[in-house]
C-alpha cells in the first residue's frame, strides 16, 4: 500500500516536472525592443515618466477601435506620457505595408498624425482594390508635396525600416495588434488598454 502511494506521488511529481519543463522549453527569450521611432511618430516630452509604445497595423480593425481609448488616455495625461508609434503590419493584411509606407512619407513632410488619423477614420474606404488611389487621395487632401511623397514611397530604406520594426515587435513577442507597452507592461487590444491602462498609468505616475 505504501509502495503504491509512493509511486503515485512520484508519478505526480514527474507529470508536474514535465509540464514545467515543456513550458520552459517553449519559452522564447524576450529580447529587449527598441522604443525608437522617428520624431514625427512620437508625442509628449522626451523625459516623461511614462513611456508608451504602440505596435499597430493600419489595416487592423482592432487598431482603429483602439484609437478612441488611446486618444482619451493621452489627452488625460497630456505632458506626462511619451507616446511612440511603431509599425507592425501583419502579414495577413496585404495593404498594411503600403499604408505604413504612405504614412511614413507623410511623416517626412510633417503630417504623420493627420495621415495616421485619416487611415484609421476611413479604414473601410481604402482596405480594398482602391487602396492605391485612396492613399494618394489622402496625401493630396493633406496638401503634401505629391512628387516628394511618391518618390519617398519608392525609397528602399522604408521596407527595411518596416522589417526592423517588425523585428522589434517579434522581439517583444507581439502577436496581435494593437499591442501597447506602458513602461514595459503589455496591454493587448483596446479592451485591455481601456480597462487597465488608465489605472496602470496612474500607478506609474505616483511611483
Amino acid at each position: 500500500m505504501g509502495t503504491v502511494f509512493a509511486r503515485r506521488i512520484a508519478a505526480a511529481a514527474l507529470i508536474l516536472t514535465l509540464a514545467v519543463l515543456s513550458a520552459l522549453t517553449a519559452h522564447k527569450t524576450h529580447k529587449p525592443f527598441s522604443p525608437f521611432a522617428p520624431d514625427f511618430r512620437t508625442q509628449g516630452p522626451a523625459d516623461a515618466k511614462v513611456l508608451m509604445v504602440e505596435f499597430s497595423d493600419f489595416e487592423c480593425p482592432a487598431c482603429r477601435y483602439a484609437e478612441k481609448p488611446l486618444h482619451d488616455l493621452l489627452a488625460l495625461y497630456k505632458g506626462h506620457i511619451r507616446f511612440v508609434f511603431k509599425h507592425y503590419p501583419l502579414r495577413m493584411h496585404e495593404r498594411a505595408r503600403p499604408a505604413a509606407i504612405a504614412a511614413e512619407c507623410a511623416g517626412r513632410q510633417g503630417r504623420f498624425w493627420e495621415y495616421h488619423d485619416r487611415l484609421y477614420d476611413r479604414q473601410e474606404e481604402w482596405t480594398n482594390d482602391k487602396a492605391e488611389m485612396m492613399l494618394a487621395g489622402y496625401a493630396s487632401d493633406l496638401k503634401l508635396d505629391m512628387d516628394a511623397w511618391q518618390a519617398c514611397r519608392r525609397d528602399p530604406a522604408l521596407p527595411a525600416l518596416l522589417e526592423a520594426e517588425l523585428r522589434d515587435g517579434n522581439n517583444a513577442w507581439v502577436g496581435s495588434t494593437p499591442t501597447f507597452f506602458i513602461n514595459g507592461k503589455r496591454f493587448v487590444g483596446f479592451q485591455q488598454l481601456r480597462e487597465r491602462g488608465t489605472l496602470f498609468v496612474e500607478k506609474e505616475l505616483k511611483r
Binding site: 502577436g175 503589455r186 496591454f187
Partner: peptide, 10 residues
C-alpha cells in the same frame, strides 16, 4: 504557457 498571458487573454 510560454507566451505573454495578455496575448492569450486578448
Amino acid at each position: 504557457a510560454a507566451g505573454p498571458v495578455e496575448e492569450f487573454a486578448y
